[in-house]
């Protein structure tokens, strides 16, 4: 268990210097984006996060939503997640990780032209499900993927 923490810290060390420099250089944080749902990102429960984004927690599992994840992530700092969906009129995709401190990883507001798939990389603290929530019409659809987060590359 502790090994996961080590690798997570080490992966981040490289960026620490850059992060400090930027923080020092930008001493006057300007306004926070109005659209950014602070409450949702700070929610400590999955249901709270979903509710903060969509106003409801009535999820319906759907086979039209797929979450593609690596079965085993060697490095929890970089886990590639792809969400595909085939629902007509999809408006939004959100990615949640129940075992992370901050449950909501990302939320995407889609348009007609841009709605079939999203790939991004997220951090994962430990082995967990990854939940994708898609809003289409007035309903919420969901799908799950599971990622086993390990340290070594030989695990089966």
């Amino acid at each position: 268990m502790d090994n996961n923490r080590r690798i997570f810290l080490r992966a981040g060390m490289a960026s620490a210097a850059a992060g400090m420099a930027v923080a020092a250089g930008l001493l006057t944080p300007r306004m926070v984006l109005a659209a950014w749902p602070k409450q949702a990102f700070e929610a400590t429960k999955v249901d709270d996060a979903i509710k903060a984004v969509y106003g409801s927690t009535a999820l319906e599992p759907s086979d039209k939503v797929t979450v593609k994840t690596p079965d085993i992530a060697e490095n929890g700092a970089v886990v590639s997640i792809t969400v595909r969906q085939k629902l007509p009129g999809a408006q939004s995709i959100s990615i949640l990780v129940p075992e992370n401190g901050s449950k909501l990883a990302a939320s995407y507001e889609l348009s007609k032209q841009c709605s079939s798939f999203i790939t991004c990389r997220i951090k994962m603290r430990k082995t967990s499900d990854v939940i994708a929530v898609v809003k289409a019409g007035d309903k919420l659809y969901s799908a799950k993927g599971r990622v086993k987060v390990t340290l070594g590359g030989c695990g089966g």
Binding site: N100, A105, A106, C114, I118, T119, C120
Partner: peptide, 16 residues
Amino acid sequence: LTCLWGPVVSKNPFLS
């Protein structure tokens, strides 16, 4: 497309 990200997104984010 509008992406709203939390700190959970990895360092040097990739998006496709």
